[in-house]
């Protein structure tokens, strides 16, 4: 079995988000980059499914050379080899197209992504890959098990869950519950340095969206403190002042 895991390189979760150049650019000064937390979950499940020599895992990233530490981290955690498509990720459409083109030439049984990248938060890449390849895509899954040439998947829906069977090959975007993220061990870190990392060129595709600028949320007004001895007054304030109940 061959599994492709898509990984993105994102600002650390503690990053204070600020912008430069008249709010058109994310301020990367002092920002630490990490492997997207959801992609760690996808990778962890891929490793479990391949345990005991049952398959191989390829990591794919669309990014410039600065993403290589993140790719190496994924190799250290347990993937076998990696591909970097050398381009700045313009939008999800562009990223998914590049990944799909690669996947077309290298038949994979399963393609996994994270539920969303924590910087762009589009939740778009997985389903777009599915459409480019004309294979099923399941977004935001919480469980994934194999049963012959099918997978049994649980996905989240509003106020509940849906359990479905899917024919291989398919794409799925992984959320918490699918697996616990794995920490690389010393052996993994050593071997990651020598695992193959292939760099390929991006392919041309027409642009469908263009990023314009950012905005930070408006600051909140001052906080109104309610004395704990009169906590019940809060309910009144929520009704008469905030008008939310």
């Amino acid at each position: 079995m061959k599994i492709l895991v898509c990984v993105s390189n994102v600002p650390d979760t503690t990053t204070k988000i600020t912008f430069t150049n008249d709010n058109t650019q994310f301020n990367t000064a002092g920002v630490q980059y990490i492997l997207n937390p959801y992609d760690e979950i996808a990778l962890a499940r891929a490793i479990e499914l391949c345990e005991g020599g049952k398959g191989s895992i390829t990591i794919i990233n669309v990014g410039e050379s600065s993403t290589e530490p993140t790719i190496r981290k994924a190799l250290a955690i347990g993937a076998d080899d990696a591909v970097r498509i050398n381009a700045a990720p313009r939008d999800a459409y562009f990223v998914a197209y590049q990944i799909a083109q690669y996947a077309k030439q290298n038949a994979f049984d399963i393609i996994l992504t994270g539920r969303e990248s924590i910087d762009y938060n589009g939740s778009q890449v997985a389903a777009m890959i599915g459409e480019f390849l004309d294979i099923p895509s399941i977004s935001i899954i919480k469980k994934l098990d194999l049963e012959g040439s099918n997978a049994i998947i649980q996905r989240e829906i509003e106020g509940g869950k849906e359990i479905l069977t899917v024919q291989l090959p398919f794409v799925a975007s992984c959320a918490e519950g699918v697996a616990e993220a794995k920490i690389p061990n010393m052996r993994g870190i050593m071997s990651a340095r020598t695992k193959p990392l292939q760099v390929i060129d991006a392919q041309q595709i027409e642009q469908v969206s263009e990023f314009k600028k950012y905005e930070t949320p408006a600051p909140r007004g001052a906080v109104t403190m309610v004395d704990s001895a009169e906590a019940e007054k809060l309910i009144n304030l929520l009704h008469t002042e905030a008008k939310v109940i």
């Binding site: 998914a96 778009q124 389903a127 829906i157 469908v208």
Partner: peptide, 23 residues
Amino acid sequence: NSFTGKGLAPRIAVKLQAGLADS
């Protein structure tokens, strides 16, 4: 932009070669 919409919108975008603004 529900769980279902997140699964559908990107596929429709590819079918129609359309830009997608999620969220």
